[in-house]
Design a binder for these strands. Structure first.
Length: 373
DNA sequence: CGGTAACCTGGGAT
DNA sequence: AATCCCAGGTTAC
């Protein structure tokens, strides 16, 4: 009674042709052209289709020291934005598709490519950028207690913490566990492609992040086939739990903004695939918990080098994890997560290469990674 | 309760 | 070329 060839069955609701993670594992039935479709006139309808939209750059009242796009978008807070120009990044905020770029003087301006409402887009953008928080003031305070921070801050101005949508943030970081940036980005891209198509900029297509309802139609097996590995069940499991919340999962997540950090973390950790680190990412990057500290291997390195030298050489266990977080909070205070963000970025190989050598040649620790049984 | 092995996958190092 | 190791961890013993 059941078809033995599921790949030939054609009853799919109509998944908007998700991009493939691995080129090898997926074969479309036959006649479908594999990857890119060059014959879809979706590239630049901006002027012809939407004459009402003012597709022009609008300055934001934000200097480079308040927002550096290269230090904010491609540094691991979000995997959804793409670089579409030398100093330009493009992504979506809710139903709005827009680009940000630095002007000659470093100031940031934005361009709305597609949006149901320009005024709503601007409000969403300001909210997303956390513009109410002065980075310069925070960093002055951090610098007073930490000369190394002060020095790094000179070179890495404008590394800002975004205020993302919690569902979007959660799903992204579910993909991040024990994974690398490149593959995380591909996974997030796959999930994103389930959302409404909003437009293309350069070579990239952009979709609104799919609702929980849309996400709930994806099976664990589909995700596995798409290359998610064991994270497939994290996604489906978490979506299921969220869907079971009385007021809806999105609302439930938003309500965590009103809780204290420990309670928010505990709540997040009830979701499958969410542990302390992912929970802290969600708390910091989407739930206004500015002193949440995502303790990953990088932060662990930082902490053992500069904050808790007595722990050098130890393994990163959950308990030590919270101890690291506490150390950051005692040192940097209420906005410790924002300090951690800068220190984390300074550890990224891409940024490290740009810093004067005296920052990182302090003493290359001998790996000593003998995890022999 | 605190400490360790699996867990998917792909790219880079050995 | 075959393995090993690792990547912004979490879960199950």
């Amino acid at each position: 009674m059941h078809s033995m060839k599921p790949s030939l069955a054609m009853k799919r609701p109509r998944p908007p042709s998700p991009p493939l993670l691995s080129s090898a594992s997926t074969k479309q039935t036959s006649s479908t052209p594999p990857p890119k479709s060059l014959h879809q006139p979706k590239t630049p309808p901006l002027s012809s289709r939407k004459p009402k939209l003012h597709t022009e750059w609008v300055p934001l009242n934000l200097s480079q020291s308040e927002l550096s796009l290269p230090l904010t978008f491609p540094t691991g807070q979000t995997f959804r934005w793409r670089q579409t120009g030398p100093l330009q990044f493009t992504g979506t905020i809710g139903p709005h598709l827009l680009s940000l770029k630095h002007l000659q003087n470093g100031d940031v301006s934005y361009l709305i490519h597609s949006s149901p409402s320009e005024s709503a887009a601007k409000l969403a953008l300001l909210d997303f950028l956390n513009v109410g928080i002065s980075l310069a003031k925070l960093w002055d305070a951090f610098s007073e207690n930490d000369s190394r921070f002060a020095e790094l801050a000179k070179y890495l101005k404008g590394a800002r913490v975004l205020r993302q949508d919690p569902v979007e943030c959660l799903i992204q970081f579910l993909c991040s566990s024990n994974n690398n940036i490149g593959r995380i980005t591909k996974m997030v891209d796959f999930v994103s492609s389930l959302g409404t198509y909003l437009g293309s900029v350069g070579e990239f297509e952009f979709h609104e992040f799919p609702s929980l309802e849309r996400l709930s139609v994806v099976s664990e097996e589909e995700l596995r086939r798409a290359g998610f590995g064991y994270r497939a069940k994290y996604i489906t499991g978490t979506v299921d739990v969220l869907q079971s919340k009385p007021d809806g999962g999105a609302q439930w997540l938003l309500s965590l903004r009103k809780l204290d950090l420990p309670e928010a973390i505990d709540a997040l950790c009830t979701l499958p695939g969410v542990g302390p680190k992912v929970a802290a990412c969600i708390a910091l990057f989407s739930l206004d918990h500015h002193h949440a500290i995502p303790v990953d291997t990088h932060v662990w390195q930082i902490a053992t080098k500069y904050l808790l030298p007595e722990l050098a050489g130890a393994r990163l266990t959950p308990k030590l994890c919270s101890r690291v977080a506490d150390a950051f909070v005692s040192k940097y205070g209420e906005y410790a997560g924002w300090a951690q963000t800068l220190l984390f970025i300074a550890e990224l190989p891409s940024q490290k290469a740009l810093l004067p050598s005296h920052f990182w040649d302090i003493k290359e620790k001998k790996p000593a990674k003998n995890k022999r049984r």
